[in-house]
Design a binder for these strands. Sequence first.
DNA 1: CCGTTCTGAGAGCACTGCTCTCGTCCGATC
DNA 2: GATCGGACGAGAGCAGTGCTCTCAGAACGG
Lengths: 249, 249
Amino acid sequence: MLSFRLGMGQTEHMTTGKGGRARARAQITAEILDAGRRQLATEGAAGLSLRAVARDVGMVSSAVYRYVASRDELLTRLIIEAYDALGATVERAAAGDRHPADRFLAAARAVRAWAVEHPHEFLLLYGSPVPGYAAPADTIGPASRPTLALFGIVTDAHRAGALAPRSPSEAAVASPLRSDLAAVNQALGTDLPDDVLVAATAAWTQMFGLVGFELTGQTRNVVHHHAELFDACVVAMAEMIGLRADSAP
Amino acid sequence: MLSFRLGMGQTEHMTTGKGGRARARAQITAEILDAGRRQLATEGAAGLSLRAVARDVGMVSSAVYRYVASRDELLTRLIIEAYDALGATVERAAAGDRHPADRFLAAARAVRAWAVEHPHEFLLLYGSPVPGYAAPADTIGPASRPTLALFGIVTDAHRAGALAPRSPSEAAVASPLRSDLAAVNQALGTDLPDDVLVAATAAWTQMFGLVGFELTGQTRNVVHHHAELFDACVVAMAEMIGLRADSAP
DNA sequence: CCGTTCTGAGAGCACTGCTCTCGTCCGATC
DNA sequence: GATCGGACGAGAGCAGTGCTCTCAGAACGG
C-alpha cells in the first residue's frame, strides 16, 4: 500500500489548482497549529509532541519541520495565540463606560473564565516555563495585553478622579522601588500615585495567583466555590486600589 | 573493562560488611534523592531524567527502579521534601512572640527567599503540574505547612485582639462561600470573621502569585527591585487583613 | 551449608526531537 | 511551452527518554 503512492504530497493537502503554493502552505500551517492547540488542551504543555501533531495532520514527523522550525517554535506560536486570545477576552470585558469598579470585576472574571476554560493554556502562559524553553521577544508584546487592560481600568479611574483615597499608612514606598514604579507609569503613559501602583500590582498578582492555585488544585478539598471566592478577593483588592462601586463615576 | 566485573554490585555502593542490607539500601536511596534534587535544581522539574540520575549515582537505569518505583514517585518524594523544607523555613520565620505584623512580613519574606534560592523547586510545588503526574495524597500534609504557618499568624493576632477592623464595605460575603470559609475555620480551629479569611486568602495568593511572576520572568524588564516590590505588596496586604504594625500587640 | 531474597547489568520496547537524504512535484523564468 | 530551481513529503537514522524483563551473582537467614 505504501509501496506505490508515487512520490509524495497531495495525500490530502493537495493545493487543488490555483491559489498557489503559498495558500496551501498557510492552510497546512494553520492545520498544524490547530492540531497543536488541540493537543495542548488535552495533554498539556510538556506533553505536546511534534510527532503526534504530525500524525494528527496526516504527515510524517519530518515533514512538519517544513512548516515549524522546532517544537519550541510551535510552542512559541501557541503561546502568542493564547496571550492574544486571553488579552482580547479581557479587553472586551474591560471595555465600556461603566463604573471602573464594575469594569475591573468584569475583567477579572474574564481572566478566570478564560483560565478555567483553557487551563493548560493558562498554565502554559503563567505556570512553570517549559524546561529548555526560553520565551523569545515576540511574546512580550502579546503577553502584556491582559495586564495593560487591567491597569488601564485603574488609569481611567484615576484620570476621572474616581479613585477613593487609600489608607494613609500605605503611603511610604521604599526609594529603590520608586524607579520601577516610575517606569510603569511611563509605560502606561500616566502618573498614578505609588500606592495605587503597588495596590494594582498586588491585585494583579493576587488574581493570577488565585486562578493558578485553583487550576493546579492547591485549594482542592478546601475551596469548592471558586467563583465566589475569586469575586470576594477581587472586590477586596479593588477596594484596596480605591475602586469603590459607590464612588463618583 | 566492563567485561569482567563479576556479577554486579559493590561498584561503589558496597555495604562494607555489617550494617546490613537495609543500611546500604537507605544510603543508596538517599544518594538517588540527592542526585534527583541536584538535577531538579539545574534542569527543572520536566527535565528530571531517571537515567541521568542513574548515571549520576553510577548505576544503570534499570537498577534505580529497585529503589524508586517510577519517575513520578521520585518526583513525589522530591516534592514532599521541598514542601517540608519550605514549610520549615516559613515556620521558623513565623515563630516568636513579636508583633503579628512583623511575623507576617518575616514569614512572607521567608517564602520569597526560599523561592529565589530554589526556583525550580518552588515552581515544581506551585507552578504547572508535570504532565502525566497527579500528586498523591502523601503530599497534601506537607503542602499545607507553609499555608498553615501564614494563617496561623493571623489567627494568633485575632485571638490577641490585635486585628484592626476592616473597611465596612468588605463585609458581605456570598452565601455559598460561607461554607468554604467555615471549613477553613474548622481546619484552623478558629473562628476568624469571613472578611478576615477572604483578606488572608487574598494575601496568601498574592504572595505566591507575585513570587511566581518573579521566577517565571513575567515582570522582567519592568521590575528590577523585586524584594522591595514584594515587601510593599505584603505590607499592603497585611494592612488589608488588619495587621498593623502600630496596633496593640 | 543451602535456598531464598535482593541487587545490578544488559537487552529491548515504544516513544520523543531532530537531521539528512532522496525522489518527486510545482511554479516562475527564459 | 519546455526547463530548472526550490519546495515538499517520505523514510531512515541518531541520541535520548521511561519502563520491563531476564539473568547471574551476592547477601542473608535458617
